[in-house]
Each structure stands twice: as C-alpha cells, then as structure tokens.
Computed example of a mutant assay.
Amino acid sequence: MLEEPPILRIRRNFPRPTAAQIDAFRGVPTGFVCDAMNGAGSLDTAIAPIGAATTSGPVVGTAVVAENGPAEILATMAALSIVQAGDILLSAVHGHQGTSACGDLILGMMKNNDLAGFVTDGPMRDIEGIEEVGLPAWCTGLNPNSPYSKGPATVGDGAIVGGQYVCSGDIIVADRSGVVVIPHAKIDATIKALEEVKAAEDAFEAKVKGGAKSFLDLDAMVAEGKAVWID
C-alpha cells in the first residue's frame, strides 16, 4: 500500500536577489517597472491595495510564495517560519473567492517578522484589524469566511498568482496602482532598462508641465504616410 504523501513541502534555499538589486527599485512606481519590462509584469487588476497599502508609497521586497490552493492557508502559516525581514509573502489560493486568504492576526505575525508586505489572489478579512496592523497588503476584496489548513501546500517554490507565474526569489514592487513581478533572471536587465525609462519619463513630464497639448505630430505622420486625413 502506498504511503500518504506529506501535506506540506517547504523549500528554504532558493536564489535571492542582492540588497543592491532590491534597493534599485526602492521608490520606483510600478508603471516605471512595467515600462522597463516592455509594458508587462503586473498581476491581475483584481488584486488591489487594502489598509496601509492605500496610502503608502511603493513597496519592494523578495517574493516568498505560499502555494495554498483554494480555501487553504497552511502554506501561508508555514511560510512565517522561513521568511526574512523585508520579504513580501505571496499567498496563492488559485483565485478562490469563497473564503478569506488571510486575516489581521496572521498579517500581524507578518509585521512581527518585519515583512515589507503581503499579496494574495484571494480576499482578506477583519478590515479594522488590517488597518490597525498597518502592514501594506494587496488582495481581491473582503470575505469573512474562514479558510482551512489541511493541505496539501508548498512553500518557497512558485505558483500562478494573478495571471503571472511567480517564483520565490523574484522581486515584487507594489503600490497603489498594483503589484508587479520582476523575475529573478531579469532583475539586472530591468534595472538597466529602468534608467532609460526614468530619463524618458522626466523629459516627457517636463514637456507636459511646459504646456504640451498633444502627444502625436499628426501632420508629420501624414507626410510620412503613416496616417491619412479622411475628411
């Protein structure tokens, strides 16, 4: 007879970004990060800021993925034993909306571990407590139903969260506009591209503040054959 598999698998030693790599994204808006990755990288729009995340600036940290599954919280609970200060814990519940993925007490434990934030593709509960804890969090809304902790669950590996495959060791940048994932293998390339994005944004912002009223030069586009007047 086959033995029952373990209900919990934990990967403790995954590649982590360096402190310098994380620092390169501090204070950077999520829109800039997406532009540096060819306009992509954001999690689904349904994952929105709640509590302190609605007023805080950009938050950045190393992703630690808790693959819970629908209506489960075992992986999130176990992840609290391996996280490091400054990490961002991601709870994957496969987008399940029928139960809470986290409440204020576990969020409080995350704050006690000096995490930078929490992200889930499910709802949370205990909004008053969430606001009191003050740890930035992103979720799909509110639902007071309780999750289970029966497993199976995996910590420290990867999972699909909000339409993106996120691996532990990726960098997360999150603000009031949403949550962006920088894959570990693309961190340095994104940092390099970010400098060009910042320069372009600064130049365009100066034009707008200087009175610019239009983005396109339509007359030039017509002259080049890229556009045509139809009336």
Rank of each mutant, 00 (worst) to 15 (best):
L2D: 15
E3H: 10
P5Q: 14
P5W: 07
I7E: 15
I10C: 11
R12F: 09
P17D: 01
A19I: 14
A20N: 10
I22N: 04
F25S: 01
R26H: 13
G31M: 08
F32D: 03
M37A: 06
S42R: 09
T45A: 10
A52M: 06
T54I: 03
T55A: 13
G57F: 12
A63G: 06
V65H: 10
E72N: 01
L74F: 07
T76K: 07
A79C: 15
A85T: 15
D87A: 08
S100P: 10
A101G: 07
L105R: 15
N113P: 10
D114C: 13
L115Q: 05
G117S: 01
D121W: 08
I127L: 11
G129H: 07
G134P: 14
P136N: 02
P147W: 00
S149N: 06
S149K: 09
I160M: 12
G162C: 04
V166W: 01
I172Y: 05
D175I: 00
K192P: 02
E196N: 13
E196H: 13
K198N: 06
D202N: 02
D202H: 03
A206C: 08
K207M: 13
V208S: 02
K213N: 09
A223D: 13
E224Y: 06
A227H: 02
I230Y: 03
